[in-house]
Write a protein that binds this DNA or RNA. Structure first.
Lengths: 330, 330
DNA sequence: AATATATATGGAATCGATTGCATTAGGGGC
DNA sequence: GCCCCTAATGCAATCGATTCCATATATATT
């Protein structure tokens, strides 16, 4: 690869002048600029990003942390992030935390060494107090997951509303025995906590007492959903509806229900969360909460780049719309 | 961040000695080594990867090109690649080609500037003649997709066998009117071509003439599958079975069949390809060809790192097993 | 005409590591 | 006691860019 010195030599100018041309600095005569541009062209020169990086320039690389890329919600998010980043000339480094605190921190360390300019966290495993110190090495933007103080730029959805809409819909369908299922723990913070609040609010408004036996925590996969259905079948007093924290769990429930000849929604109404492609594939099709993944990814990249290129930009929280999509499972 | 000079100063040694300790060179006395290690510990020092990179060291970053990350086949592949890379201390840069030649090349360019040590291509859009020149800047490994000469390290499956198994299975079920559906074009190369060969071989062995009206090319999504079913419905002479190039297309066919009260497999038997999670979610569950994504990703990383750390390693092709999984759709 | 200001240009230091070469101190062989 | 070799160490160059500072010229201001 040609270096800046090669260009300098060929064009008969100094490295300084070449660098000025590259970076569009003022005070370069038109004549020399053209000489330099011609030499660059001739050599097929592109500046070495590593060298620039060492000088403390931007790396044009953004890191993204997801819990698991195979979860369609996150692969859709990564998809929109990558596309938006590419359009702006940025690269995307991904890491899966697998919900592991140590791995999350290992990845945040890339900020320290200027391996990435900023990191988009789509999930938070460590406490914010642990993560916060890293913000001084680079921009950390929270997308999807969030903390309950305005400490970092955030792109989020009104999770409380999401859960509220789902539960209210079940109530309106006449259900009183409603089970609730969440990915986190019941006393979680951030996203999980807000969903729980929405659940509680809707139940309270409908004057229904929450039955703790119908609360399932830490549920994520199709497999988890299948197990939930089996547990419900074993209950003397069964719920007539269930709100799940994810389409995958809902899918597991529906699939297992079929095995046991339970009719959905007659015997059990099911609400998912995410509006993943499987929601339309399931039979019956899944009523679920739609999160605009594409918008979230795009907006995250836009805000991130704005913050990087203009560090004095004010830190803000952006809230995107969240909606209930009624299909056949309720 | 602490630099090597800080460590040198604190330990009272030269940068050279510190560097020797970091890189485990011989000729450092035990006494000084410990002094240096203590200083490193105290300062929380980690070498700056950017600076190392500039000196021509490895970047410990691997690039991965996928067509679309939202395709579960590829997100599973990326998942296993990322996990394996993390275990070896490597980072993963991803790019989606979206089947776009220019974007594929843009990403290959990262090799030139030593932004990545090597690239794992899970799909090939440009002709190999265009890609080949990039191999001199870094390692290019083909995983999943491949070319028909042994020009690069490849991790592949016997695609011919995959298609052959699927078609043969349909033949054994008594089908004679078999439709065939592929992601590429019918005269493709690499993966697509080999699948076509398997199809042709199985048909020939069963003495069935291929009906060109039952060949569908360039099909990828659930939506495509739905359209295919509608086209079949409009035919006077309908196939009784269809082999699809992907579970997604198969899903579209099954979903749309349900809309038109067509029974599967009675009216139309369907074979997918990939064994994605939806294969088990669909009703009826999908008979499909299982590709070991996890093994492929893991093996790719292993071979890649071997080639990077030991450049004289011989270029080889690795073939992994491919199997038919019979479920309810046939 | 003298001075201030804007425009152009290049030399050399710098970022944080690695490494070739030179130097020194000991140990062994004769 | 002299020579040679090995082990241990550090100086300074290097990777490929950016940027501070000095300098030179042209133009504007008094």
């Amino acid at each position: 690869m040609a270096t800046i010195s090669d260009v300098a030599k060929l064009s008969g100018q100094s490295k300084t002048t070449v660098s000025r041309v590259i970076n569009k600095h003022p005070y370069v005569s038109e004549e020399k600029r053209e000489l330099v541009l011609k030499a660059m062209e001739e050599l097929g020169y592109t500046p070495n990003p590593t060298a620039r990086r060492l000088r403390g320039q931007l790396t044009t690389t953004i890191g993204v942390i997801v819990p698991r890329i195979v979860n369609p919600f996150f692969s859709y998010l990564v998809n929109s992030i990558e596309n938006a980043a590419y359009q702006k000339g940025y690269q995307v480094l991904i890491a899966q935390s697998n919900e592991d605190k140590e791995k999350e921190l290992a990845f945040l360390n890339l900020l320290k060494n200027k391996q990435v300019d900023g990191i988009i966290m789509t999930s938070i495993v460590n406490d914010w107090e642990i993560i916060e110190p890293y913000t001084k090495y680079g921009t950390i933007l929270l997308c999807n997951d969030y903390v309950n103080q305005e400490v970092a730029p955030m792109i989020r959805l009104d999770q409380t509303k999401g859960a509220y809409l789902g539960i209210k819909h079940l109530v309106e369908k006449g259900h009183k025995k409603i089970a609730y299922c969440t990915g986190g723990l019941f006393d979680a913070h951030g996203r999980g906590r807000d969903r729980n609040l929405g659940f509680q609010k809707a139940m309270q408004e409908a004057n229904i007492k929450i039955n703790p036996r119908w609360i399932f925590v830490d549920q994520h996969t199709i497999e988890d959903g299948k197990i939930i259905l089996k547990q419900i079948l074993e209950m003397d007093d069964r719920p007539t509806a269930i709100f799940t924290g994810s389409d995958e769990v809902a899918a597991g429930i529906i699939i297992e229900a079929k095995e046991h000849s339970l009719s959905i929604p007659q015997d059990l109404a099911v609400v998912g969360f995410d509006d993943q492609p499987i929601a339309e594939i399931l039979d019956p099709k899944l009523t679920t909460i739609c999160q605009p993944m594409d918008q979230m990814g795009e907006k995250s990249v836009k805000v991130m780049i704005e913050l990087l290129e203009n560090p004095k930009t004010q830190i803000k929280t952006y809230e995107l719309p969240i909606d209930l999509i009624v299909r056949q499972s309720t």
